[in-house]
Design a protein around this nucleic acid. Structure first.
Lengths: 245, 245
DNA sequence: TCAAAAGTGTTGACTTTACACCCATGA
DNA sequence: TCATGGGTGTAAAGTCAACACTTTTGA
């Protein structure tokens, strides 16, 4: 719309302010972490009667004085204490009856966080990590939101240097490969994986080795600082045209 | 959010109903067509003072009694008379000051329509097709919305059988190639393009030839009915895993 | 007979996959 | 000395890009 705000002012007034403005807008965050060799997502026990016993994603209403894209950062800050996390908008869900308490349209984001660097505000003790694979049912339409975000994450993870947000600063190629396998839900060939990552040029060799591993230590790498910008504005994306004759 | 609707009821009440519900939500449609060998988009003259002389996308506020994803269909029906068009949600834009008249969060969709099959309700005569390439500036943040939708269209056009929505029922491979060139903004090699399309298996050979062309007529094709479903729910997408070792 | 586009294959470059052995370390 | 993973290369298959000539039709 946009123009109709002026165009249809009379009509809006007539049908009451609230008729057009009683749609609430929220954000929901699919917060991924990599824990115990599994891709996990942060959930909270739903306290709605209708969904008792079910978990739901973390979210909140968008405030009138904040940008839509700022709301999920606020939610993450409040709930986990983390700032400068990786966040990406995925899709907006808005069927009429998706929320039991009223009309709420929600914009879904996924977030990738390093569980080791975080000081999770698990004070409320309502927050829990759940392996993505084990999640069958969530409150509201949150299972669909989760599935959509996971699908998007899988699409992007080989293309952009984002998986590193789930790992500590330094990591070995084995850890990286296990992470990719957890995200994609498949196993990868070690030699081919290493070649593929090498070609991307994302990594900096730290000339350090793993310690305290019960086997031959591997080299440690880190993401090149070039790629470490968080709160990315526009990703530098290989043009789709590359694949066209 | 979602749960907070109940959780924070007291807080919401306290801060006044309107504080949380005075964000309006709209949809904006980037309606593409293929006309005069160019990718064009349907625009309307902005009647806001602040944007006098500028064009804007077609949009409207989302109604309290319609699904978010239904709103752009309604806008298209009202403005162009077309139903069962191809529509895809792209992104939601929600910076605080994106709209001069108040807080409006907008979800952007792009649509692909066949200009020949349409009976455009250009009654208001405010609607005009504009070649995408010529568009420099639009009202609000609509240029950014257009750019985002064009980028998404380009990403999807080689992967899914969607470009056909811009063509009449029957078309030649030359027409199809010119369309792809218009969308992607590049020229394509004829032999490689035909091979690539053939491999997709999207087309049905009609055993008919072009007529009234000032040169040797080409064969006519149509999209296989299998792919003609409009209002697609979930696209059948080649898994991203295919490209992983 | 000319202009315009239809129709069609091959080669080389590059990318991707499948696959196996020896090495270094800690227990 | 054993178990675990580290580290590495090659060959075959598949994909992609570049490229030219003959044919058909209408004007």
């Amino acid at each position: 719309m946009d123009k109709n705000i002026k165009l249809k002012t009379a009509e809006i007034e007539k049908s009451s302010h609230l008729e057009y403005f009683n749609i609430a807008i929220s954000v929901d965050c699919v917060i991924f972490c990599y824990k115990e060799k599994k891709l996990q997502v942060l959930l909270i026990q739903s306290d709605l009667e209708e969904y008792s016993g079910l978990y739901s994603l973390l979210g909140d209403l968008v405030r009138p004085d904040e940008d839509l894209d700022s709301a999920p950062y606020r939610v993450l800050k409040q709930r986990t204490g983390m700032e400068d996390v990786y966040l990406e908008q995925v899709h907006t869900f808005g069927t009429i009856n998706r929320h039991v308490s009223g009309r709420v349209i929600t914009t879904a984001y996924y977030s990738l966080i390093d569980i080791k660097h975080q000081m999770l505000n698990f004070d409320e003790n309502e927050l829990h990590w759940h392996p993505v694979k084990d999640i069958r049912k969530l409150a509201f339409d949150h299972k669909m939101i989760l599935d959509t975000c996971l699908e998007r994450l899988r699409e992007q993870v080989m293309e952009y240097p984002i998986a590193f947000n789930l790992l500590p600063e330094k990591f070995s190629l084995r850890e990286l490969q296990k992470l990719y396998e957890a995200i994609l839900g498949i196993t990868l060939d070690r030699r081919n994986f290493r070649k593929k990552i090498a070609v991307k040029g994302w990594l900096e060799d730290l000339d350090q080795m793993e310690v305290n591993v019960p086997h031959r230590p591997g080299k440690l790498y880190t993401l090149k600082t070039l790629y470490k910008k968080r709160r990315q504005t526009r990703k530098s994306k290989p043009s789709v045209l590359d694949s066209v004759s």
